[in-house]
């Protein structure tokens, strides 16, 4: 992960936050955006069924973060704080317009993924996985993405999602089971892609 190494450099990050506080230095905030955009966008792309919506939401997240930067007290990772804003933004957006799950939307999402907008290699297994993740309920998809893809601990995921750690673990377990079932069913329908599912 390209941004992890930079994120771990806490002093650089803290310096940038201090410089950006109160709108004093927009370039410092720009650097923070560059450092963390990949994580935030990855999370939102997993939750939204349209990458343009996801990226719009990601922009909103950084605008809100800029406005509320003084609320970040340095407890926990800055990227986790951004992810918590992202998750709340997603939920708010989700409440406003129900998730589009009809065939056309699904086809559109598949097309975008197949065109390489989200995954450069457009691996069929990856597309299946992304589609399967979109079918999961938001808390399960978010918990899996935050924990397994973005590498946050259960405790951090619990803070981001404002849920007890036990609930987060249940979401991950249930979500993984559902993913397994969905991908197994998909592999039965499409044995050609199943051959690439398990590279040995």
């Amino acid at each position: 992960m390209t941004d992890t190494g930079v994120t771990d450099n806490g002093s650089l990050e803290a310096g940038l936050i201090l410089r950006a506080l109160g709108g004093a230095d927009d370039r410092a905030f720009g650097q923070l955006v560059v450092m963390h955009q990949s994580r935030v966008r990855a999370l939102l792309r997993r939750l939204c069924d349209n990458i343009h919506t996801a990226d719009d939401l990601a922009q909103d997240v950084f605008v809100i973060a800029y406005q509320k930067l003084s609320d970040y007290r340095g407890k926990g990772r800055f990227s986790a704080w951004l992810c918590s804003i992202a998750y709340r933004q997603y939920l708010q957006n989700h409440r406003q317009r129900k998730r589009e799950r009809d065939v056309h939307a699904e086809y559109g999402a598949w097309q975008e993924l197949a065109n390489g907008n989200s995954t450069p290699d457009a691996d069929p297994m990856h597309i299946d996985l992304e589609r399967a993740l979109l079918r999961l309920p938001a808390p399960e998809s978010a918990a899996i993405t935050l924990n397994m893809t973005l590498g946050y601990s259960h405790r951090e995921v619990a803070t981001v999602m404002q849920l007890p750690p036990g609930t987060v673990k249940s979401h991950i377990k249930r979500g993984l089971e559902k993913l397994k079932l969905q991908l197994s069913a998909s592999a039965e329908h499409n044995p050609a892609s199943a051959g690439r599912e398990k590279p040995v």
């Binding site: 720009g30 990949s38 605008v63 800029y66 995954t119 290699d121 996985l129 993405t145 993984l176």
Partner: peptide, 25 residues
């Protein structure tokens, strides 16, 4: 193998994203 796949995260390049955020701000 499912967990391995989930851990793979292709990095998303900035491609003007941060500039767009700063313009919005």
């Amino acid at each position: 193998s499912l967990e391995d796949q989930l851990r793979q995260r292709p990095p998303i390049t900035d491609h003007g994203f941060s500039q767009a955020v700063l313009r919005r701000i």
